[in-house]
């Protein structure tokens, strides 16, 4: 029944679930924001997430050290980013297609390694929930906001940091300049290639962490193709968020909240077919995209390779 949805338990459930579900999107989409603001569309996020998830899980499983797992995910993501940067910046390959290539590489490679190195689904003890004295005890609010693991908090902390870097630092100015008008930036002495290398590798690193947030913090398993399209949703969220970290946060939260709402609708036997329910977050995202995107402008140099005129 629909009326069953309006209770404190359900409200807490929806908000807390939404906050957790948004975590991997935040890492991946904030990373993608950096690379797109510098003019590079990276569609390989999903592959980077998968390999990051596997690396984190496998290292955590074999060493028992979650931080080494995190480090492994970051390294794997960064290396994938480095390769992507070489292909798109130096070789000036078409960005969309090469991104899909990297996605397929990550999908296949993570599965291959999973089968070769592990052989079966296993579990690890991931990052535990952090109990914050005082805050976690607040009724309702404590359950919603202060009952999560470390990687969830870090994801939300990343948003203001990314905003600050992009808008208040010289580095951010360079990134935006390179994404808007690389020729002008170049003539002012900004090394376009170096800036793009930086943003793509940063994006890869954050995608790796996004994968790790699934495999060693939120789910604590690795399964073939476990990201299940989240990397592509993250790319869509960058457009949704109009290339701003705060917008990305809004998009990630909206998508995740609607997703957790539909989970609750099914549990509370709201009489709509499950196929319709699971479509809701996607339909809503598309609607918002249609309404908002026409009003914002993408970075001018997005997807355009930069060729220096000598």
């Amino acid at each position: 029944m629909i009326s069953d949805l309006f209770s404190v338990t359900v409200l807490i459930g929806i908000l807390a679930s939404g906050i957790r579900l948004a975590t991997p999107y935040l890492y991946a989409a904030v990373g993608e924001t950096f690379s797109q603001r510098s003019g590079v569309l990276n569609l390989g996020v999903e592959g980077q997430m998968l390999l990051g998830a596997f690396a984190a899980f496998y290292v955590a499983l074999t060493t028992g050290n979650l931080w080494l797992g995190m480090l492994a995910a970051m390294i794997v993501g960064a290396v994938m980013g480095l390769a992507m940067a070489y292909v798109t910046v130096n070789l000036q390959a078409q960005q969309g297609i090469s991104g899909i290539g990297f996605y397929l590489f990550g999908l296949g490679m993570s599965d291959l390694l999973f089968q070769k190195l592990m052989g079966t689904v296993e579990t690890v003890k991931g990052f535990p929930r952090i109990y914050i004295p005082g805050l976690s005890d607040i009724p309702v609010l404590g359950e919603i906001f202060f009952n999560h693991n470390l990687l969830v908090y870090l994801a939300y902390l990343l948003v203001p940091v990314a905003w600050f870097v992009l808008n208040k630092t010289t580095l951010g100015l360079k990134i935006r300049a390179v994404g808007e008008n690389p020729d002008a930036a170049d003539s002012l002495g900004v090394n376009v290639a170096r800036v793009r290398y930086f943003t793509i590798i940063l994006g890869g690193t954050l995608s790796g962490i996004a994968g790790a947030s699934l495999s060693i913090a939120l789910l604590n398993v690795f399964q073939q193709n476990m990201t299940s399209g989240q990397g592509f949703i993250a790319v869509a969220l960058v457009y949704f968020g109009a290339w701003r970290p705060v917008g990305v946060l809004g998009g990630a939260l909206l998508f995740s909240m609607v997703n957790s709402l539909q989970l609750w609708m099914q549990v509370k036997n709201v009489p709509i077919p499950p196929d319709i329910a699971v479509m809701l977050p996607y339909v809503l995202t598309i609607l918002v995209l249609v309404v908002t995107v026409s009003r914002v402008r993408a970075p001018s140099a997005l997807t355009k390779p930069f060729e220096r005129e000598e």
Partner: peptide, 20 residues
């Protein structure tokens, strides 16, 4: 209470469905 998550691979959503 039955929850169909609409996917055979989305481990994250299945896990959140269980939490729900």
């Amino acid at each position: 209470n039955v929850n169909y998550i609409g996917s055979f691979s989305d481990v994250a959503l299945a896990s959140e469905a269980a939490t729900t």
